[in-house]
Design a protein around this nucleic acid. Structure first.
Lengths: 300, 300
DNA sequence: ATAATGTCTTTTATCGTGAAAAAACATTTG
DNA sequence: CAAATGTTTTTTCACGATAAAAGACATTAT
């Protein structure tokens, strides 16, 4: 089986969408940068487009013959990378319950269950280990540390430290920095989302990530920027399993973001600090209440 | 070739040292915990010890027949893990110069040069990536970000944030916490090293790591504790290539540590903060001066 | 009956292999 | 001759296979 051609399939699907917009496709290198793949993959895509009668391809001439039908697209699930597939399976197991702290993780079993090779699982676990949820025993199994209250507290402690510092750095940026335009755009998106919150509340999580990443980037510190991956990953799955009062929570968060943005624009460090603290506090609270901690249980 | 038996060889060497101390070895499970390996490996070790006439082995009876000779030990280099071998090779290349930022890293080439499989190199690079010195291009090569001044500054920024917080947490620990005894022991070691600094200055780096890890552990935050791996790794190699004024630097650092320890013991947060800041400042300075930055060069 | 030894099974660590994808080189075209 | 296309080589990604090491089960000894 070796290797799936998901890169090709995904790029092909995105390539199909280009056909609606023009009558003739650009050059191969141009398509490559557009789709984020190599020329080799571009040519494979073009070859299939020609085969299925979507385009007529003759050297520099790539004429669009017809609009793509739903049938032309590869199925979504075939466009995922192995890493995504493994991550999803792993997180499903982890959140499905029965994933107590201290539990052993078996590479072989995981690989068999997901239907992939052990190498891919191993590499996934190594990458995943930086999130602080699992730990390796040398020459032996991995140990699950569990998504516990302690984990959430440790995570938010760092997050608060990093974001307060980044926010201060952001406010201190010169007025001609391009980040201010980015911030304006995000502010507008927040305002728009606020008015349509009743129907679009589930779009907040994506906006949230872009907003916080913009702020973290102002730190100009790779460790701070990289750490946001941990936060993003946790919040991503957190949003998936905790749907309680999602609309209300997101509405509150949008308001906090707007106050936070206003504070940044005022460039008043005191205001920035206060607005940032307030938002982080409620973010922490949301995360903590969603943790299914067994409180007060007597362990014999 | 598959897999080297370095676990066995290393444990065997450590096992040989036990023979000097007793006339008969303990039970297999006991030996296992003592050497940190499974019973399977213990039995392989015992089998060889019997073969080479070091012990007489009959079930529960493991009588020492003779003291081990230098010849009995496996060569040091055969006891290294593959990961260690790859790390050393990689760092040697990186520090040997010609490792400009932006340079591509080729898994296959690295693997061939070191004489190992690509899988091991891949896994190493994934693990190594958390140090912030390399970055992966999806479906493509790794990019070296370089051990630059910017890297050192970003690293020390986080270090200072984390250590100041850990030191404060340390000072706030209750008097009956076992860390105070650990601190006392480290203090004594520092005093001893100070008096013998002329000959033992190169032993400082190991003491340094133990001291700072003790402090970081007081944060009770896995992200802070784990981050010390990055610092330790950098300082480990830094010590290897920058031997200029090593004795003087270490002497100064020992003095700073002692002041830092005294401040912690005073439990006066102001003093702790000042002593910690002072030490971190000189640590940063040492690191920065050792970076071979090409300053003011005009890049055409 | 507990703890050790003896034996068998499973898992981890590592390699070689081959298809997918990228990259390099050669050739053509505007 | 610069940029595109055509062709070939190299590298990455992922798998199955195998020895080392861990772990589980069965048996024996105190």
């Amino acid at each position: 089986m070796s290797k799936s051609n998901n890169v090709y399939k995904d790029a092909y699907n995105r390539g199909l969408r280009l056909l609606d917009e023009t009558q003739s496709l650009p050059s191969e290198p141009e398509l490559g940068t557009l789709l984020g793949v190599s020329r080799t993959t571009v040519r494979t895509i073009l070859a299939r487009m020609e085969e299925t009668g979507l385009i007529a391809w003759n050297k520099r001439n790539k004429t669009v013959l017809r609009a793509p039908k739903p049938d032309d697209f590869f199925p979504e699930e075939e466009t995922d990378t192995l890493a995504q597939i493994i991550e999803r399976s792993f997180m499903r197991r982890l959140l499905a319950g029965g994933a107590e702290a201290g539990m052993q993780i078996n590479e072989l079993e995981l690989a068999r269950e997901i239907g992939v090779g052990t190498t891919s699982v191993r590499e996934f676990l190594i990458r995943f280990s930086r999130f602080g949820l699992i730990e390796k025993r040398r020459n032996s199994h991995w140990v699950l540390k569990g998504f516990t209250r302690a984990f959430a507290l440790e995570l938010t402690e760092i997050r608060e430290m990093f974001e307060l510092r980044s926010a201060a750095a952001f406010a201190a940026l010169p007025g001609d920095s391009p980040v201010w335009a980015d911030l304006d755009r995000l502010e507008a998106e927040h305002h728009l989302l606020k008015t349509e919150i009743a129907t679009r509340f589930n779009e907040f999580s994506e906006l949230d990530e872009r907003f916080h990443r913009l702020i973290h980037r102002a730190s100009h510190n790779r460790f701070i920027v990289d750490f946001y991956d941990v936060i993003a990953m946790i919040f991503h799955y957190h949003y998936q399993w905790n749907k309680a009062q999602e609309r209300e929570r997101n509405e509150v968060a949008v308001g906090e973001h707007l106050a936070y943005i206003a504070a940044l624009k005022s460039r008043d460090l005191g205001k920035v600090d206060a607005a940032c603290r307030k938002h982080l506090k409620s973010a922490r609270h949301t995360l903590l209440t969603s943790i299914p901690e067994i409180g007060g249980r007597i362990v014999s």
